[in-house]
Design a protein around this nucleic acid. Structure first.
Lengths: 221, 221
DNA sequence: ACCTGAACACCGTTCAAGT
DNA sequence: ACCTGAACACCGTTCAAGT
């Protein structure tokens, strides 16, 4: 339920349309990916195109709202896993859920990949997911299940990597995501040599880090 | 140099235009990603839009040609590394080159992700890269550097995963790809428990696997 | 307040007319 | 044989006119 800073109370029909659009778009995106046209979504929902843009000023905003919901789903699952007896198994289960979620819904794959960054709803959902991942990661670390230079952000990003590695063959071998998650999990086990480069901070959300740098630069790498 | 089944000999100006377009598009894609318009590429190259489509019937074909070249570059580097004294270090170096290549060129990131599948040029380049990766992987395995249930295809896909994991923060922390590659490499070390799921065959290219299944199905997962 | 569809700018692609 | 730009279909987005 990522219902953040809304202008307080929508008219009855407006609220209904918003939900309707969210649901219609979610299934459409899951089926065909984000390239479905707004026109088609509007038609499937039985409203005019203009209505879509009244609720979501841009297509990105619509995607953001849906992805935000999905992130919340993963946060819920992660929070529940915090009660689990085996912290390491809980972290692995969390990552597995994340990989499967991406496989199920094509639109989630774009999470945080530049398309959907500056939206406040997504930002809030991503922050919450970051906190959950950090908690799970710290428990697993204290339990001795994973190396001590790995953060919750690492876990979230690697969970994305596991799915993205498998993505090209997703149609042929849907279980491949699990395979690569297993490789990654094995790589997270306690080890001697430290990982190279900077460590993504546990408190720093993806969006925060990005906006800090000012958007739209660095086109020339 | 992926110059495959072309209608034998282009007219002088045509050959020149083709190269010009390839170069112009390559830099444009690397700078701004694949979303640059054909119109802009045509203009930057100083030709009409129609000319672009005469050489590359579709935008995908243009991308395919460029990505194919890039894959060849990685194959060349990999083949050179086959002479290296330390097979395990060679494999790691190969993967590092692959991650860096993706970071350098935004268009390569889409490799084999469904956009660019059925193109024969890409298919040939991907096959070759697959063979190179397989050779490097087998040498490292015989050397005892990696677990024995990992194929060259695994290596290629994981190399993609490493970059994709880091991609959301690529602007802020360009070295993050190396970090996640290190995690993955650690996970590839010889181990007791086998990886779950099917093993991507060393001889089977990504494209081959895909066309075997017949495209356009499996929309409902 | 909210909905709607015509209108706009832009994109990939086609093709008749040129050389 | 190859090049060109006008023309087409489609897309995201805007907005004046309706309720």
């Amino acid at each position: 339920m990522a219902t953040a800073a809304q202008p307080r109370r929508l008219r009855a029909d407006a609220a209904r349309n918003r939900r309707l659009l969210l649901d219609t778009a979610a299934t459409a995106f899951a089926e065909q990916g984000i390239e479905v046209s707004i026109a088609e979504i509007a038609q499937r929902a039985g409203v005019g195109k203009g209505t879509v843009f009244r609720h979501f000023p841009t297509k990105e905003d619509l995607i953001a709202a849906i992805v935000g919901d999905q992130l919340d789903y993963l946060s819920d699952a992660g929070d529940a896993l915090l009660e689990s007896a085996d912290p390491t198994a809980a972290l692995i289960e969390f990552m597995t859920l994340g990989v499967d979620l991406q496989a199920r819904d094509r639109s989630v794959c774009q999470i945080a990949i530049g398309v959907v960054h500056n939206d406040p709803e997504i930002k809030a959902a991503a922050d919450r997911l970051g906190r959950t991942a950090t908690a799970l990661t710290e428990r697993a670390r204290e339990h001795g299940g994973i190396r001590d230079d790995v953060t919750g952000q690492d876990v979230l990003l690697l969970l994305r990597g596991a799915y993205q590695a498998a993505a090209p063959l997703a149609h042929v071998a849907p279980e491949l995501g699990r395979r690569y998650l297993a490789v990654i999990v094995a790589g997270l086990r306690p080890a001697t040599s430290p990982l190279p480069g900077p460590i993504p901070g546990p408190s720093l959300s993806i969006d925060t880090m990005r906006t800090e740098v000012e958007d739209g630069d660095s086109r020339n790498a």
